[in-house]
Nucleic acid binder design. Sequence first.
DNA 1: TAATTGCGGTAACATTGGTTACATAGTCAT
DNA 2: ATGACTATGTAACCAATGTTACCGCAATTA
Lengths: 210, 210
Amino acid sequence: MINQLKESYGHIFEDGLLDEIVQVGTFKEIPEGFKMMEIGEYVKSMPLLISGVIKVLREDNEGDELLLYYLEKGETCSMTMTCCLGQKQSEIRAIAETDTKLIMIPVGKMEEWTAKYKSWRNFVFESYHNRINELLMTLDSIAFYQMDERLTQYLIEKVRVNDTDIINNTHQEIAYDLYTSRVVISRLLKKMEQLGKIELGRNYLKIINL
Amino acid sequence: MINQLKESYGHIFEDGLLDEIVQVGTFKEIPEGFKMMEIGEYVKSMPLLISGVIKVLREDNEGDELLLYYLEKGETCSMTMTCCLGQKQSEIRAIAETDTKLIMIPVGKMEEWTAKYKSWRNFVFESYHNRINELLMTLDSIAFYQMDERLTQYLIEKVRVNDTDIINNTHQEIAYDLYTSRVVISRLLKKMEQLGKIELGRNYLKIINL
DNA sequence: TAATTGCGGTAACATTGGTTACATAGTCAT
DNA sequence: ATGACTATGTAACCAATGTTACCGCAATTA
């Protein structure tokens, strides 16, 4: 655990803090598809991501979802932080997009470390800043762009976080993430294929040139 | 300034912190319509709102705007905080919705206070939490609701922050905030009038029963 | 192999909301 | 009062996308 922690966080946390993390943190491995947090749940610990990708979703009244953003190595869930501190319920759902390794930190330490370690404070603020910017970009994409452009952005991001240009999802799954219907996605993907941007197959899709 | 500070923040900040704020803070009065922050600007100080309302906007490529949320008494701009700390550019525009009184805190103090005062840390985290939740609600409203429902929510919120059921705006101004066109707003408002929900006039609109 | 299920392709249609154009009616300055 | 300007009302049209329905094919299972 120490090595993996150092690899992801060694350059941002002070040695004393790294030691404390090793002492109080719990190492966890999460399989792809595992639901790590549900809307309305209370949160008792905060995750530091070592490897893998977590997708964060928002839900409407009918239970349909919208992808907000991905969390990656070296990041944490800001929403969890404030939920922990304020004893608030989660506003979002989090699901492992890939197999994921992380370290869980008990709530109590957060307050303490914020007072004690400058590097922790920076991490926390940086984290909020990044998350807010990602929310703003998601908002931009919904408010300012049309579905074809949103789909393209989605595929580009998906390729980036999974580090492969083959996407193994059904059209229905993509439609869920973008909060639209399968027919709409199939229609747009087919158009992209005709333009030579992607290659389509059953349960997969290959990015050629977006 | 001390009295006004105590009225808005007395119950959340420790006495020592209140003293420091009085010493290093600058009191400011801002007229309605004043642009307090522009996208791309660097920020050198952080506002603590004493009275009034500030509206926070996001802009698309063409320069058209979308209302994100309002800041009120006892609140601060979380985006400013991280911008200050990280020397980042602002991602948003802020405009005084009403005449506003506030205290500006120089950046340098923020880091210091975060280590020193528990009440400041709580305020900062609480602030992030609120802002993220407002962003999520804005996102919900754009992603999950149609324009008629968004307009209704907008009017309710406007009535709340301005504390009056008469809204002195043109349809064009409302359309800007909701990132749509004047014709669409006129159409929907007329329908609401026919349902007896509002009363329409030139440059004003009265809420009857939303 | 036959049956079932899940995925993707496609057509037809409905709805929302954006666009253009023009008319009407307040408001203000002269 | 006249003319200029601004706000609003409204019709007609268009584009994006959501909806429904049905088909064929692949994969899985009986």
